[in-house]
């Protein structure tokens, strides 16, 4: 009797495990893979709501022009720290090959910023949920909560998180009054201008570009301008093989 019970139990428990796994996989269907080759990036089924995204047309990006970066850094009071080992940046320009790999034929410097990934590894690294993905797809930092452990900085494969090794206010000449500064000991990075979006404005780099090379919009809205551009052009993302699903795209 006891023996039978045990056998029965094992059988039932096995079925339970299978059922549990089935249920779990049902929950997980939303995540997973995104087609990342060229323009084939369409919204994943089951993904609803807004996902802010950016498209940089590198053909229109001028050599030596840094207006987008200057505008971004001024708007958000990003300190211009002198020491190269302590730089803080939300946006910077980097060699196209370094940025996008061998598919990119250009070695011209291209703008780079936080990719606002759908699967952000920084958020998985943060012990306090201080860096997290918002409902509109923006990966944001709660500067009131960040403990400064630099795990997100370590885990960002794009190196887009900066740490305030020293007091940022000391390196801030002409602060913009509309946005706070940060303090020593917290990390910071691009916020996709969530502060401007809420006021109905476009990101400052988009507005600052004299060539109109940067487009911004909702990637989950088939009628948005950025979706049309993505569908009509060949685009690249940074390190798509890592599965982070960046929301920043580049036209080469």
């Amino acid at each position: 009797m006891m023996h039978n019970d045990r056998r029965e139990f094992i059988r039932k428990a096995g079925i339970g495990m299978l059922a549990g796994m089935g249920a779990a996989s049902g929950i997980l269907t939303g995540g997973g893979f995104e087609r990342t080759t060229s323009a084939a990036w369409a919204a994943v089924p089951g993904e609803h709501g807004r996902r802010w995204g950016m498209l940089i047309d590198t053909r229109r990006c001028r050599e030596g022009c840094t207006l987008c970066i200057e505008s971004c850094h001024h708007t958000h009071n990003v300190p211009a720290v002198k020491s190269p080992d302590e730089t803080v940046e939300w946006m910077h320009k980097e060699d196209g090959r370094e940025l996008l790999g061998s598919l990119c034929s250009s070695t011209a410097a291209l703008p780079a910023l936080c990719n606002h990934c759908v699967e952000p590894s920084c958020a998985r690294a943060c012990p306090t949920d201080s860096i997290f993905r918002r409902t509109d797809g923006i990966v944001a930092i709660d500067y009131h909560r960040c403990v400064g452990c630099r795990s997100c900085m370590q885990s960002c494969p794009y190196g887009e998180v900066s740490f305030n090794w020293s007091d940022p206010r000391a390196s801030l000449k002409n602060p913009s009054l509309d946005y706070p500064t940060r303090q020593r000991g917290v990390v910071e990075k691009c916020n996709f201008c969530s502060d401007r979006l809420v006021r109905g404005k476009k990101p400052s780099c988009v507005e600052a570009c004299p060539e109109g090379a940067i487009s911004f919009g909702n990637l989950n809205d088939p009628s948005s301008e950025i979706r049309k551009l993505l569908e009509s052009s060949e685009t690249l993302q940074r390190k798509p093989e890592l599965g982070t699903r960046p929301s920043v795209f580049y036209i080469i």
């Binding site: 958020a123 998985r124 943060c126 960040c146 403990v147 452990c149 630099r150 305030n164 020593r184 000991g185």
Partner: peptide
């Protein structure tokens, strides 16, 4: 920690998905 006075945050705001 860069912000040592926030150390209690490590215990008060855990996110189960993050091993840290």
């Amino acid at each position: 920690l860069g912000m040592q006075r926030r150390i209690l945050t490590l215990f008060l705001n855990p996110s189960p998905g993050a091993p840290a």
